[in-house]
């Protein structure tokens, strides 16, 4: 994650010299194989998508697509279903990212200690990252299953009521999928923070301990300043990834019950590929891009500031 900032910093003198020496038309030959697919399948579609948002494009229509100006956006403004979905998306993104960060911070600090079982914990902490999102969704469906699920069985054993149908309950569906989101994203955040912890000057930590600073004080004055840039970067990325998340909730609830877990991605997917409203769905995508851009700007600004401090 930090390589981003790293790439912006000027290179060492020797490298600059080497770069200047070999830079030239030959570079194109090395870059082209990657550049063409990037332009055709990434940059191009993105720009095309933004244009589509200003048209009445529909799937499988024979009539020519026309420009409609900002009509899609005006419609969106009054689309209460979309804004409800947008609100759910924000609740989901923040609800997943914040607890995930706190849990990951705790785990990273623990894994940074000399504890037994650390190897097992590290291995286990990687597994959710490796799993296909669809499998994570299926697995948690089994956990939440009202009859054959372990969650209700455990609650029954503990005498905490008869259990419920977590993923179908209007009140429980969103919290239930948020828990899965936290579980699934914990590894990336933990690994990033663990890497960030290597930047914490151990000598300073020890000196502070000798001077009688307690654990919390040491964390605040020594660990956190060194960890802050990484923490900020991974939190911003997780927030963005979570706003873009699709597969997990698609498998868990399909957006139900009654749209209570219909994230913006699911909403736009249905709009585009179930109802064929390409233009309208693209406009939704644009709104999401705008939100994500703001987040990205905050992230980059924070990164640069963090870079100055470090």
């Amino acid at each position: 994650m930090t390589s981003v900032a790293e790439a912006r910093t000027p290179p060492a003198g020797e490298r600059r010299a080497a770069g200047r020496r070999t830079a030239g038309h030959g570079t194109w030959f090395l870059v082209l194989p990657a550049l063409v697919p990037i332009l055709v399948f990434s940059v191009g579609p993105l720009l095309y998508g933004i244009l589509l948002a200003f048209t009445d494009a529909q799937s499988g229509r024979t009539a020519a697509t026309r420009w409609t100006g900002a009509l899609n956006f005006r419609d969106l403004l009054h689309d209460t279903l979309f804004w409800e979905s947008f609100r759910i998306g924000l609740v989901w993104a923040v609800g997943v990212t914040v607890p995930q960060f706190l849990l990951a911070l705790g785990l990273a600090l623990l894994l940074n200690q000399d504890l037994r079982l650390r190897g097992l914990a590290r291995a286990l902490a990687i597994v959710p990252w490796a799993m296909p999102e669809v499998v994570v969704g299926i697995m948690w469906r089994l956990v939440y299953n009202p009859d054959a699920g372990i969650l209700n069985e455990t609650l029954r054993d503990l005498g905490l009521g008869a259990g419920r149908d977590w993923l179908s309950g209007l009140a429980t569906a969103l919290p239930a999928v948020v828990v899965v989101g936290v579980w699934a994203g914990l590894p990336q955040t933990t690994v990033a923070l663990l890497a960030g912890l290597q930047n914490v000057p151990r000598e300073l930590h020890e000196a502070a301990a000798v001077d009688g600073a307690g654990a919390w004080r040491r964390f605040r004055t020594v660990t956190w300043p060194a960890l802050r840039p990484v923490a900020l970067a991974i939190t911003a990325l997780q927030l963005i990834w979570n706003l873009n998340s699709f597969a997990l909730v698609y498998v868990l609830t399909g957006g139900g019950p009654g749209g209570k877990t219909r994230l913006p991605m699911l909403f736009a997917y249905e709009e585009a590929f179930r109802y064929g409203q390409f233009g309208y769905a693209a406009a939704m995508g644009c709104v999401l891009v705008a939100v994500v851009s703001v987040l990205l700007a905050v992230f980059l600004a924070g990164r640069l500031r963090g870079g100055d401090e470090a």
């Binding site: 579609p45 998508g49 873009n244 769905a281 995508g285």
Partner: peptide, 14 residues
Amino acid sequence: AFPFVLVIIPLFLV
């Protein structure tokens, strides 16, 4: 930060 939903429709058409 690309929202896949904005990319997927044009990608589908391309």
